[in-house]
C-alpha cells in the first residue's frame, strides 16, 4: 500500500456500492411486497437488512482502516467535511418537509375545513385536532412533563459531547471516553423516556392530523437519535482502541455535528409540536 499523502487518495475498485444497491433493492422490494401481503416480502426485508448491516460494517471498516494507515491528506479531510455538511443540510430539508406539513395543517387546512362548513357543519378549527370526522376526544401530549425533561437531557448531552471534544484536544483520553459514555447514556435515557411517552400516550398515529404529524416528526427524530447513539458508540469503541488524536479526528467531529443537528431539531419539535 503506497502512502503518498501528497496526492488525493483515490480508492481502488470496490464491491460495496453494488452491495448497497442490492441491500436497498431487497429492503424496498421486500417492503412493497410485505405491505401488500405477498409471501416472501418479510424474508426479503430481513435479507436486505442483514446485507445492509454487513455493508455498513464492511465499508466503514475499510474507510477507518484507510484513515489509520494515513492515506488521507488534508484535502481528503476537507472533502469529508464538505460531504458531511451537505449531508446534514439534506437532513434539515427532510425535516423541513414534515414541519411544513405541520404548519400547513395548523394554519391552513383546519381553518378551511372550519370555514367551509360543507361536509362537517359545526367543526371549529383548533389545535390539537384529530380532524372534523374524529369521534372520540383524545389527550394531547403535555409539554412540561417528559418532553421538558427530554429537552434538558438532549441539551446536556450536547454539552457532555463538547466536553469530550475538549478532552480530545487536550489529549486527555479519560475525559474523552468519559464524555462519550455520558453522551451515549443521556441519548439512551432520552430514547427510553421517549418510548415510555409513546406507551403512555392518549392517542395514536391514526388520531387525525395531530397524531400523524406528532408521530412522524418525533418518530423520525427518535430514529435519528438512535442512529446518532449508534454512531457515538462506534466512536467510543474507536477511542478505546486508541484511534484519533488532537489533529486528526474527523470521524469524531462528523458524529458530533450530527448529534448537535439532532439536538437542534428537537428544540424545534419541543417548541412547535409539544409546546405551542
Amino acid at each position: 500500500m503506497s502512502q503518498n499523502t501528497k496526492n488525493y487518495y483515490l480508492p481502488g475498485p470496490s464491491f460495496w456500492p453494488a452491495i448497497a444497491a442490492t441491500a436497498l433493492f431487497l429492503l424496498a422490494g421486500g417492503f412493497a411486497m410485505a405491505l401488500n401481503n405477498i409471501a416472501p416480502g418479510k424474508l426479503l426485508m430481513v435479507a436486505g437488512g442483514v446485507i445492509f448491516a454487513y455493508l455498513l460494517f464492511g465499508w466503514f471498516s475499510e474507510v477507518i482502516g484507510e484513515s489509520i494507515s494515513k492515506v488521507y491528506n488534508k484535502q481528503v479531510d476537507k472533502s469529508f467535511r464538505w460531504g458531511m455538511g451537505w449531508f446534514i443540510f439534506s437532513e434539515v430539508m427532510f425535516f423541513f418537509g414534515f414541519f411544513g406539513a405541520l404548519f400547513y395543517a395548523r394554519n391552513v387546512s383546519l381553518h378551511w375545513l372550519a370555514d367551509a362548513q360543507l361536509l362537517w357543519p359545526g367543526f371549529v378549527a383548533s389545535w390539537p385536532s384529530a380532524g372534523p370526522a374524529a369521534k372520540e376526544a383524545f389527550t394531547p401530549m403535555a409539554a412540561w412533563g417528559i418532553p421538558a425533561i427530554n429537552t434538558l437531557i438532549l441539551l446536556s448531552s450536547g454539552a457532555t459531547l463538547t466536553w469530550a471534544h475538549w478532552g480530545l484536544m487536550k489529549n486527555n483520553r479519560k475525559q474523552l471516553a468519559m464524555g462519550l459514555i455520558l453522551t451515549i447514556a443521556l441519548g439512551a435515557t432520552f430514547l427510553f423516556l421517549q418510548a415510555h411517552e409513546y406507551a403512555e400516550a392518549g392517542f395514536t398515529i391514526k388520531t387525525g392530523i395531530y397524531g400523524a404529524t406528532f408521530y412522524m416528526l418525533t418518530g423520525f427524530h427518535g430514529l435519528h437519535v438512535t442512529l446518532g447513539a449508534i454512531m457515538l458508540t462506534v466512536i467510543l469503541i474507536r477511542v478505546l482502541k486508541g484511534h484519533f488524536d488532537s489533529h486528526n479526528h474527523f470521524g469524531f467531529e462528523a458524529v458530533a455535528w450530527y448529534w448537535h443537528f439532532v439536538d437542534v431539531v428537537w428544540l424545534f419539535l419541543f417548541i412547535f409540536v409539544y409546546w405551542l
Binding site: 411544513g100 406539513a101 391514526k206
Partner: peptide, 26 residues
C-alpha cells in the same frame, strides 16, 4: 429530501393510518 418526505407521508397514509391527505382527519 422534501420529495422523500412527501412520498413517505403518502406511504403512511396508505398503510399506517395517518391522515396527512385526508380532510376527515384534518
Amino acid at each position: 429530501p422534501v420529495l422523500a418526505g412527501a412520498v413517505t407521508m403518502l406511504l403512511t397514509d396508505r398503510h399506517f393510518g395517518t391522515h396527512f391527505f385526508n380532510a376527515a382527519g384534518g
